[in-house]
Simulated assay, not measured.
Amino acid sequence: MALSVEKLKENFAKNGKTLAQWARENGYQPREVYLVIGGQNKAKYGRGFEIARKLGLK
């Protein structure tokens, strides 16, 4: 089951980690991750899709 964006943010807050930290640790630019989280990148293919999969959104 895919996580909702709200649940994802909640999990990050619980663990004391930022999305930017996660992005850097996984080889992405923070902006790419924020575009996926915010819905500007629909994450249907490419890096956006890869990011969404790793975050558990897809």
Rank of each mutant, 00 (worst) to 15 (best):
G27W: 04
E25K: 01
E25Q: 14
Y45F: 11
K44S: 13
M1K: 13
A43N: 01
I51P: 09
Y34V: 02
G56M: 01
A20V: 10
Q21C: 04
A2P: 15
I51C: 09
V5Y: 09
K58Y: 10
T18M: 07
N41G: 07
I51E: 05
K54I: 10
V33N: 02
Y34C: 00
G46D: 04
Q29M: 01
G48A: 00
K7I: 12
E25V: 08
A43D: 03
T18L: 03
G39T: 02
E32M: 10
I51S: 06
A23F: 07
L8D: 01
R31V: 01
Y28G: 02
K54Y: 09
E32R: 03
G16L: 11
A52H: 11
W22T: 03
Q40T: 14
K42D: 03
K17L: 11
W22S: 12
K54D: 09
I37K: 00
G48V: 07
A2W: 02
E50P: 02
R24H: 11
A13D: 11
L8E: 02
I51Y: 06
K44N: 13
R31S: 08
E10N: 10
Y34F: 02
Q40I: 06
Q40M: 00
V36Q: 03
G38Y: 05
G16N: 06
P30M: 09
N11M: 14
W22K: 04
L57W: 03
G27T: 10
M1R: 13
Q29C: 01
P30L: 09
K7N: 12
R53W: 11
Y34W: 05
I37Q: 07
G46W: 00
A43Q: 08
R47L: 04
E50M: 08
N11I: 11
L35P: 11
L57H: 02
G38M: 01
R53C: 12
K54V: 01
E25N: 12
N15I: 03
K54R: 15
K58V: 14
M1G: 15
E6S: 15
R24K: 13
E32W: 00
S4M: 11
L55C: 10
A23G: 11
Y28S: 05
R53L: 12
E32I: 02
W22P: 10
G16V: 08
I51W: 05
